[in-house]
């Protein structure tokens, strides 16, 4: 049996292995049984940590940093550009489930602000052109 203290690790792993980068209700219930932790607490932990999601996300989770250093370099504009490029609003998922957009707190890429994290990769020094190229590249890569 997995120790109860491994709840967060377990949630991270389950999310990592899900195409939509999320933990479904079924999975939450499974984890609750497996670890012997009440479902309310499993949900509580999953909803506490912002990297964990109980809602389905895109194959590429675009996380736009909006902490201080990125904010003053125009993180909000970056968000708008992504919204336009992907045709969704922040917090939404594209229809083809390829991309989802969200804000994140600092990702430690302050020297290349404004920066985003897409799955495990960090991209910095963004502007409209770079974002277009990036989205284009990911669209192809996913296919």
């Amino acid at each position: 049996m997995i120790g109860k203290d491994k709840l967060i690790e377990t949630l991270i792993n389950v999310q990592k292995n899900s195409k939509g980068h999320y933990i479904s209700e079924d999975k939450l219930e499974e984890i609750s049984k497996e670890l012997g932790v009440s479902l309310s607490k499993v949900h509580g932990v999953a909803s506490f940590y912002s990297m964990l999601s109980t809602k389905e996300r895109g194959e590429y989770v675009v996380q736009i940093c909006n902490s201080g250093p990125c904010y003053i370099q125009g993180a909000n504009n970056i968000a708008t550009i992504f919204e336009e490029e992907l045709g969704i609003k922040m917090g939404e998922v594209t229809e083809d489930k390829k991309f989802s957009l969200e804000f994140t707190s600092c990702i430690g890429a302050c020297d290349i602000a404004p920066a985003v994290k897409i799955n495990n990769e960090v991209y910095g020094g963004l502007n409209k052109e770079k974002i277009r190229e990036l989205v284009e590249m990911l669209r192809k890569e996913g296919n």
């Binding site: 967060i8 690790e9 991270i12 506490f48 940590y49 912002s50 990297m51 964990l52 994140t104």
Partner: peptide, 8 residues
């Protein structure tokens, strides 16, 4: 090694 999950 233990990993956080997005909580400052």
């Amino acid at each position: 090694v233990r990993s956080g999950a997005g909580a400052y």
